[in-house]
């Protein structure tokens, strides 16, 4: 019996018989299911993009068809009157600044925790990692009070601080693991050549850790792109993408359904992610797999 075409081992590691043995009815049932899941995901994105060019009437009357004309005005309306434009710019600013700030704080800490071998380093690492389990609901009341007293409610600065602080555990966790994988002899050579610790870190180790840093930055940025809980708490009349979408949905209760404009807004939020994903997708996926798998 020849192995069917779909049993080709992924890494070319010869036909080892294991493919053949696992063929069962169950298996043949699951392969279409896996494809169906992937096709469904692609379909949802495609449907959203197509619907964003229709009129709301067309969305409901002809949900499977193509738009009768490309209504770019949906995008103009979403960008302007639905505040998605302001939301996109604010959210970009937020994820950019807080992402960089997180790296600036986390990278030296992770380097020290992974290399200096102080007595407290393992305790400190554990404290940072425990932060991964602290939910937003366990810290939002004091943060709200503090920013309120400081007059920082409705300010992007407070959100940037929150995103930076809550992003630290993950960044320290991932970068500590990353620095551990770098070879030690380079640093030893630098020390013998008389380089200072700071020089060794900033000129030698940091550039070596570049791919880890980019992964952390990307994951932080994606994670905070549509953050809603803290944004709702802090901002009042400013918009991030999620606040603009929520407000637009609220407005639809009174102004009538404008779903095609909403879909244009959703597309404006998702399109940057699609571009990023097509560009860096395998890297993000590998980063996740490596970060949790080891």
């Amino acid at each position: 019996m020849n192995a069917p075409a779909d049993t080709a081992p992924p890494n070319g590691a010869a036909r080892d018989g294991r493919g053949r043995r696992s063929r069962s009815g169950f298996h043949y049932l699951l392969i279409p299911a896996a494809w169906a899941l992937a096709v469904f995901d692609l379909f949802v994105v495609a449907w959203m993009l197509i619907s964003s060019f229709k009129t709301t009437r067309e969305v409901f009357l002809d949900p499977w068809g193509l738009p009768s004309a490309l209504r770019w005005e949906n995008y103009v309306e979403a960008w302007n009157s639905a505040n998605i434009g302001e939301g996109v710019l604010n959210s970009m600013l937020l994820v950019g600044v807080s992402g960089v700030a997180t790296i600036i704080l986390a990278a030296p800490a992770a380097y020290a925790l992974s290399r200096f071998g102080n007595r407290g380093s393992s305790t400190l690492t554990v404290i940072f990692v425990l932060g991964l389990g602290v939910p937003a609901q366990a810290i939002f009341i004091p943060l709200y009070i503090a920013f309120d007293r400081l007059g920082l409610i409705n300010s992007l600065t407070s959100l940037q601080l929150i995103y930076t602080g809550t992003g630290l555990p993950f960044a320290v966790f991932l970068l500590t693991a990353f620095f551990r994988t770098l070879p030690r002899d380079i640093e030893e050579a630098a020390v013998i050549d008389g380089a200072s610790t700071w020089y060794t870190y900033s000129r030698i180790m940091l550039p070596l850790a570049r791919s880890g840093i980019i992964t952390v930055f990307m994951l932080q940025a994606i994670g905070h792109w549509g953050e809603t809980f803290f944004a709702l708490m802090v901002l009042q009349d400013k918009h991030t993408i999620s606040l603009a979408l929520l407000e637009f949905m609220k407005a639809m209760q009174y102004t009538g359904a404008r779903w095609s404009v909403l879909f244009a807004g959703l597309s404006l939020v998702v399109l940057p992610l699609i571009v990023l994903y097509v560009w860096l997708g395998s890297r993000i996926v590998e980063g996740i797999a490596a970060g949790y798998g080891k």
Binding site: L105, A106, P108, A109, Y111, A112, L113, F116, L124, I127, F128, G131, V134, A138, I139, F140, I141, P142, L143, A146, L161, I162, T164, G165, T166, L168, P169, V172, Y201
Partner: peptide, 16 residues
């Protein structure tokens, strides 16, 4: 190396 991260982490996560 560690203090800046620890301070921000304390202010935003631990103390709250």
């Amino acid at each position: 190396f560690v203090a800046p991260a620890l301070i921000v982490f304390t202010l935003i996560v631990l103390a709250p």
